[in-house]
Design a binder for these strands. Structure first.
Length: 707
RNA sequence: GGACGGUUAGCUCAGUUGGUUAGAGCGCUUACUUGACGUGUAAGAGGUCACAGGUUCGAAUCCUGUACCGUCCACCA
């Protein structure tokens, strides 16, 4: 053995042979009880990033349960990631001087498909580099025909049950990306914008959005606001930049009398609040901004201007006519922006498919309240409850081509919609005319992701669903608790009648070394594969769980990685001492695996005793998702008890205690294996052993007779 | 406006139901390195556990409040 541990050769050595021998298949323990984790499917088009390195937690669980003799299945998947991928592709197009408008739907789809195919598999290699024991035979892709079929079926069922409906209301629209988004995909930013106090007839009101004034259909005050009581119900004549117009004054409790002058202009087509006021008062909707973010023909001479430009041009025109009383330039408010391209989100009226979430959310709440589904750490329960209790209906239509096209057909003759399970319709089921047109929109990616646990297990191998559903654990980042986890519970229960998983385990975020969130725009993204190449995959895996309470954020720390690299070197040298430097006359561990020596000293008894305690603690810690406890105990025991004390003190009786050294060390490797798969396999192979691999040897606790 | 997390040695962080002199890694000091260890071992310096109250025989740990940092949720024009 080399004096210094060379992680590169060792870590390249084992993965393929493990996979070839079928260790990643649950069938390796045919009679074990089922234990399943569905991998949160990474973007098929992407690279491994640090969030994915946290899959280590899932690998620890899977390897641990596999060693306990369970039929452990870790099911890999890849996500087509609709908007994400299409936007990446559009960037790629723009570098070529093209845009999505240069192609028809089918061509664009085909191009993106090929673009993704070129990159698929890249991330697979990277996950293998990390040692993830995923069952690749069962790999699923969100665009696999059988998955798509499941998604269609769910949509049809929802439609038939009246839980999917189509309606025209304001959506969060990104005029740059050309699609609507769900509420979750809008992020808010504090912005400073001028607040204009404008004259509306005899009244003065405050607004930021001057450019929507062409869409005003009323002026509103609070019903009990004494200042304006006499105006309620009146029709005001208003002088504007383009002539005179008339607006009615209405009373609505949504108006805050404290803000501005206590008066608002009501623009139902361009503001969510105003939309609701409009509904209550039967106001007409006048759309004055189009889907490209420009004022339309209703705005007279301002037509064609982009919103931002229009605002300043109109302000100038109004100043000239003396229609602006004052401007507050220090006004800050929160503005919704596109999470992807940071464009200001425009609330625009658009017909979309919605899921009625109320009844689904109630059930999703109940299963967590009943403890049928448990969330770790527990404080996320409150956040989960809060979201579901206030949930709004979910817009699942997206105006992009990359994704699953919605299987709904509109009949031009009878103006009715028909939904199918994916079959193409030739004639309308309502009126028999053949004037059908399929909805050009695609599903929100999260709509298909929300079905992932059952969609995958129903389409892998016969019997998988019956055996592994509900799965044991859903382990993922806490940032997608709403996007994904809550929705999986809602749709999982709805479609299968059962919860999709029993435990939800949420890990924290890995931040950059300065404690900032990693992001491409900040340029502080670190590639975990490079870290693995530098320190070893085992070291990075251990570093991710060691020293930070599970569930908390942590900063990437090079000193810590260095320390973990040293730990692997320490392990290597313990192995070298025990194996290479064994005296020639030494006894060895026999096939029973229990060290059988005549006279045990106090030291011997103590190390064996402490080993048992370590086994117990590590087992308990993993069972309760306290991975940092397990790592800490292992590190301390191996280095500071076994190496520093026991090995040192036993050097005089070396040949006598060799079996104990071998036994304790081998057990340590087994306990460490879920955390550090590569080095433990390498060293374990050099010690006396029975099974072919440490991966399939029995977890130490299961071998200890109860006492 | 709500909610959650954090605040412990110079730095990065542990500290599960409250219990003897508060821990680790890195860094620092001093010796050793005699048969495994790009080193390792042994010993050591270093903390008013954010702040203010309270409960208790006893609090980093429980309760109340405050400050600062971070995150999430919410339609304030």
């Amino acid at each position: 053995m080399d004096k210094v541990y060379d992680q590169k050769t060792v870590e390249e050595k084992w993965y393929q042979s493990w996979e070839k021998k079928g260790y990643f298949q649950p069938e390796i323990n045919p009679n074990g009880k089922p234990y399943a984790i569905i991998l949160p499917p990474p973007n098929a088009n992407g690279d491994l990033h640090f969030g994915h390195a946290m899959f280590t937690i899932e690998d620890i669980l899977i390897r641990f349960h596999r060693m306990k003799g369970e039929a452990a299945l870790w099911l890999p998947g890849e996500d087509h990631a609709g908007t994400e991928t299409q936007f990446v592709f559009e960037k790629h197009l723009s570098k070529l001087g093209k845009s999505r408008f240069d192609y028809d739907r089918a061509t664009l789809y085909k191009m993106i498909y090929e673009f993704v195919e070129e990159n698929r598999g890249k991330i697979r290699n990277q996950m293998q580099r990390m040692g993830f024991s995923l069952n690749w035979d069962r790999l699923k892709y969100t665009l696999d025909p059988d998955i798509v079929k499941v998604v269609y079926k769910t949509f049809k069922k929802l439609f038939d049950d009246g839980l999917v409906y189509r309606t025209n209301r304001l959506v969060n629209y990104c005029t740059k990306d050309g699609t609507s988004f769900s509420d979750l995909e809008v992020i808010y930013e504090e912005r400073k914008d001028p607040l204009y106090y404008i004259k509306y007839g005899p009244l003065v009101l405050a607004t930021v959005r001057l450019e929507t004034k062409f869409g005003d259909t009323a002026v509103a005050v609070h019903p009990s606001d004494k200042r304006y009581k006499k105006y309620i119900g009146q029709e005001l004549e208003i002088k504007t930049v383009s002539g005179k117009t008339k607006l009615k004054v209405i009373a609505d409790k949504a108006v805050n009398p404290e803000f501005g002058t206590g008066i608002v202009k009501v623009t139902p087509a361009h503001d969510p609040n105003d939309f609701e006021i409009g509904q209550r008062h039967n106001l007409p909707m006048i759309q004055v901004i189009d889907y490209s973010g420009k004022l339309n023909e209703k705005c007279g001479k301002f037509a064609g201007l982009r919103v931002k430009k229009a605002r300043s041009v109109i302000a100038e025109a109004m100043q000239e006519k003396g229609l602006i009383e004052k401007v507050d330039y220090d006004y800050t408010h929160r503005v919704g922006i596109c999470y992807k391209c940071k464009t200001v989100i425009e609330p625009l009226p658009l017909e979309q498919w919605y899921i009625a979430t109320k009844s689904l959310a109630e059930k999703a709440l109940k299963v967590v309240k009943n403890n049928e589904v448990k969330i770790f750490p527990i404080n996320f329960e409150k956040i989960y409850f809060n979201w579901l209790e206030n949930i709004r209906d979910w817009n699942i239509s997206r105006q992009i081509v990359w994704g699953i096209q919605i299987p709904a057909w509109f009949c031009e003759s009878c103006k009715k919609w028909t939904v199918t399970e994916g079959e193409t319709l030739d004639t309308c089921l309502h009126c028999n005319n053949s004037t059908l047109k399929q909805d050009s929109d695609t599903f929100d990616t999260w709509f298909s992701s929300a079905q992932w646990p059952f969609a995958t297990l129903q389409t892998t191998k016969p019997g998988d669903f019956e055996k592994f559903y509900p799965t044991s654990v859903m382990e993922t980042g806490r940032d997608i608790l709403f996007f994904w986890v809550a929705r999986m519970i809602m749709l999982g229960i709805y479609v299968t009648g059962k919860i999709p998983f029993k435990d939800i385990v949420l890990h924290g975020t890995v931040l950059d070394p300065l404690g900032k969130k990693m992001s491409k725009s900040k340029g502080n993204v670190v590639n975990p594969i490079e870290i693995a190449n530098q320190y070893g995959a085992d070291a990075i895996r251990f570093a991710l769980v060691y020293g930070t309470a599970f569930g908390h954020d942590q900063s990437l720390s090079h000193p810590k990685l260095q320390a973990m690299r040293k730990f692997t070197n320490k392990l290597w040298n313990i192995g070298r001492f025990i194996i290479d430097f064994a005296p020639e006359n030494a006894k060895h561990l026999d096939s029973t695996g229990i060290p059988n020596i005549n006279k045990k000293s106090q030291d011997d008894k103590q190390i064996l005793d402490n080993l048992s305690k370590t086994i117990k603690t590590v087992t308990q810690a993993i069972n309760s998702y306290r991975f940092h406890d397990a790592a800490d105990v292992l590190y301390k025991f191996i280095w500071h008890e076994f190496a520093d004390k026991y090995i040192e003190s036993s050097k005089d009786r070396r040949s006598e205690v060799q079996p104990i050294l071998e036994y304790v060390f081998r057990t340590c490797l087994e306990l460490l294996h879920p955390f550090m798969p590569f080095i433990t396999e390498e060293l374990w192979q050099k010690l006396p052993h029975k099974e072919d691999s440490i991966m399939i040897t029995k977890w130490p606790e299961t071998r200890i007779p109860a006492n």
